[in-house]
């Protein structure tokens, strides 16, 4: 199992950050995706290469500020759990943590790379607003 984690500190309060991160249909605003479509407990994301991932939304907890999802229906991906938490950094800002546990493990590194880029963009967007 490939287990990876990326995080970023953002000088904005957690509720403000969660307003964007917790809007699951808008993840393409900050993550390197082309589109996101949400229907109930399902989401479909399109990658810039044209690949579409179908996802089950496992957790979408506004009080915990946590989002968890699984990529499903893809025979190449035998196991997946993605978790994004927005935490209070104790100084008025936030720490956003994006974790991936996945088989095949090689793909976990790729998603971690995309998460790293996404978190960097998220910080830039939030702190510019």
């Amino acid at each position: 199992m490939g287990s990876v984690r990326r995080h970023v500190q953002i000088d904005r309060d957690p509720d403000t950050v969660w307003k964007l991160v917790g809007d699951l249909a808008r993840q393409h605003d900050w993550f390197p995706l082309t589109t996101c479509r949400v229907e109930g407990k399902k989401r479909w994301i399109t990658l810039p290469s044209g690949i579409v991932f179908e996802e089950d939304i496992i957790t979408h907890d506004h009080s915990l500020r946590r989002f968890q999802y699984r990529i499903v229906g893809n025979p190449a991906i035998t196991s997946h759990l993605g978790t994004c938490d927005v935490l209070d950094d104790g100084h008025g800002g936030s720490i956003v943590v994006y974790s991936t546990d996945m088989e095949p493990e090689a793909l976990a590194l790729v998603i971690a790379g995309a998460a790293g880029e996404g978190l960097h963009k998220l910080k830039t967007m939030m702190e510019a607003a």
């Binding site: 390197p32 995706l33 990658l47 810039p48 290469s49 690949i51 090689a106 790729v110 790379g113 880029e117």
Partner: peptide, 17 residues
């Protein structure tokens, strides 16, 4: 730049594809 890049984050892969 990395080869495995479904997010097309890297210029080499964008240029090629």
């Amino acid at each position: 730049e990395p080869f495995i890049d479904p997010f097309l984050r890297f210029a080499e892969n964008r240029i090629g594809s």
